[in-house]
């Protein structure tokens, strides 16, 4: 995207609508800022010091622009909904289509989290709400965490609070977390066929205790068919599928 477009648009608007200058100026500046934040997140431009992407070198990044937006009165909810979440969604879609790979997804996440440092206080004060809580863990007996971390990060980018229980998580630990976060959705990850057996057990026990719980499953050897067999609600081979599914719940 050409970042000068926003400014150009502002100039034209002023010429065409002289009587409504102030109001339009405000709206245009906001959209421009939100678009710029969104672009920064999508391409992993963290802050003014980040040399990447080269076309944005020396320019402000997600960190500074989010601060400006809040200072100009843009609500944190709008920053999330109109800039951050759409950016991460584009990133997830590009990843699903193999147009970008894990490193670029992580770069985007870093830019997103620099923006979130300004937004988190509004979550704490209750002024901005998350879409829901997502509890995730790698099942008992399994120590793999890269895949789980990627999924957490993209779901956080979709506006959810993440409770990451880590690796080698027992069913009891999952139950405890669900009790602490009523209404949460749960994600189970497993990377070995042997630990898929533990996934099956955990899913069964969780279903028994929480009949309405939504259970998502994933990990290299997991399949749609396995998901159905163990009575989980949704399987996705990548984080974006999970994000799309969660959208239908919130």
């Amino acid at each position: 995207m050409d970042l000068s477009t926003g400014t150009f648009y502002l100039f034209l608007t002023l010429v065409w609508y002289p009587g409504k200058q102030i109001l339009l100026l405000q709206i245009v500046v906001m959209t421009d800022l939100l678009e710029r934040i969104s672009t920064c997140v999508e391409f992993g431009k963290v802050d003014i010091k980040s040399p990447y992407p080269p076309a944005m070198k020396g320019q402000e990044g997600a960190f500074e622009l989010t601060r400006h937006a809040l200072d100009k009165g843009v609500s944190p909810g709008d920053i999330l909904e109109e800039a951050l979440i759409p950016a991460m969604s584009r990133v997830g879609q590009k990843f699903s289509r193999n147009e970008i790979f894990v490193p670029q997804m992580l770069m985007a996440a870093k830019a997103m989290s620099s923006s979130m440092t300004h937004i988190k206080p509004y979550y704490l004060s209750g002024e901005t709400k998350r879409r829901g809580t997502f509890i995730i863990g790698t099942v008992r007996g399994d120590l793999h965490d890269i895949g789980k971390n990627l999924v957490s990060m993209m779901i956080e980018g979709a506006g959810w609070e993440i409770v990451d229980l880590g690796v080698d998580v027992s069913t009891e630990k999952f139950i405890e977390a669900i009790e602490q976060h009523p209404g949460a959705v749960i994600g189970l990850s497993a990377l070995l066929t042997t630990t898929m057996e533990n996934m099956r057990k955990s899913a069964a026990d969780l279903r028994k205790k929480f009949p309405d719980l939504k259970i998502l499953v994933g990990g290299a050897p997991v399949t749609e068919e396995f998901c159905r067999k163990i009575g989980a609600d949704f399987y996705s081979p990548d984080p974006q599928g999970a994000v799309e599914y969660l959208k239908t719940l919130s």
Binding site: R140, G141, D142, L143, H144, L192, T194, T195, N198
Partner: peptide
Amino acid sequence: TDSALMNPV
């Protein structure tokens, strides 16, 4: 491990 996972991973 019991689940046939080697440590170090």
